[in-house]
Amino acid sequence: MAEYRFPVDASQIMLFARAVGDKNPIYHDAEYAKNTEVGGIIAPPTFVQAAAQYDPNFPLRPRIGEPWFGSGREPTGVKPKEKAAADGKKEGAIGQSARVLHAEQKFLYHRPIRPGDVLTVTTKPGKRWEKEGKRGGSLKFSEAISEFRNQDGELVVTAIMVGVETGQTVTQN
């Protein structure tokens, strides 16, 4: 079971709210937030996604000094599985993650997240299942269940992520 710490600060809450297009002052204006029911700045409902910034094993963040699979001068990095096989190489973890799409997400909210909280994140695997997709070939689904606890050990948010590994590029239109 993976475990890491996710310190929450007001700047990150503000930037996250901006990125989803939410200008609600509860996410950035301490004076406004003081006089509301929640009594201070809180994080928006999907904010715990930002824990990925602190996850030491998160594969979708470039790492200093390590190759990245996005494009530089030209498309580089991870090849599709067939190309990797032709080159006599294994696709590797990043290649697999490039074909895993986010199918479903669920959050259970136990307490508001506030600036200054230091959350401990634990993630464990959940259910796995497989089905034939109409357009994406064979689809392999898997759950990852993350619990976010605050500095007092209280459960703040439970997040259940369902990923789907597709056999090919997913086309929908």
Binding site: A50, A52, L60, S97
Partner: peptide
């Protein structure tokens, strides 16, 4: 940038 998910 906000979420940390830089998937190309």
């Amino acid at each position: 940038g906000a979420s940390g998910d830089y998937m190309p």
